[in-house]
Nucleic acid binder design. Sequence first.
DNA 1: ATTGAAATATGTTCGTA
DNA 2: TACGAACATATTTCAAT
Lengths: 156, 156
Amino acid sequence: MKSPNESVKIDGIDKEILRFLMEDARKPILEIARKIGISGAAIHQRLRKLEASGLIAGSKFIINPKVLGYTTMAYIGIYLDKAMSNPKAVKELEKIPEVLECHYTTGNWSILIKVLCKDNEHLMHVLNKEIQIIEGVSRTETFISLNQQIDRQISI
Amino acid sequence: MKSPNESVKIDGIDKEILRFLMEDARKPILEIARKIGISGAAIHQRLRKLEASGLIAGSKFIINPKVLGYTTMAYIGIYLDKAMSNPKAVKELEKIPEVLECHYTTGNWSILIKVLCKDNEHLMHVLNKEIQIIEGVSRTETFISLNQQIDRQISI
DNA sequence: ATTGAAATATGTTCGTA
DNA sequence: TACGAACATATTTCAAT
């Protein structure tokens, strides 16, 4: 992987390949090859190069949580006591499966997290019985996502 | 796809299959078959069922934006004028490629977005020249993610 | 729901340009 | 880089249980 400030350079063919696979990770390389008019072996080689560069971080099946009954997403800003070691709080948050993201942030809060719950009652439970009891957590501010309108990766 | 309040029921084998593919969408079905001890055909059929249920929303290659020089992530709370039609603002936000997520939220803001920029200067530009000029946007509050500690999907 | 086997398609390597 | 050919694997379908 390249160092943080050293951008990898990718050409138009790399971008075409990546755009296909970012939409559907299981799209056959040979199918992509036919669509963009180069050989499968060439694509295979380019993908190896892109993986080596660190640009391709992996691939994932995407699950639709609504189908499992998870319909309530929320962002929660967390205030930590000054004395609290933040990494210790993050370690506790990691144990809560409903916490999908966790960021140290500038601004009012120490930490901003994203949680996914089945419903408001479930969210309330996670807030009061899982998050608020973490040592060092002094206060939280919750923002429920009523509707997610955009969800995408970086455009290449 | 099932209706929102009707949860799909999946068994332990479905979960095992999904956990493998959520980690690596290109893992061969036959490899999974060997690991969990059932036939490839059975897994194939279960995946078809899971797709039909809507639980599998697709698959994606995951790009590491840092390798392209995108190192500054931020959440931005947006206050919209009461008169402003929110969908119109969302439409404008959609045109800004740096905007990766957009949520209508409860609480102070009308909208919460996630943006990914190359650096602070780039973020400043997106804020001042792209977002603030959208009709109806009255004020914004920016929270820069100093470090993302957790990033995962729902656990199944 | 599951299996094995057959048919088809894809992934991967390698020698060459 | 790219190619094609050869080989190894994987996907997909299907009849049978």
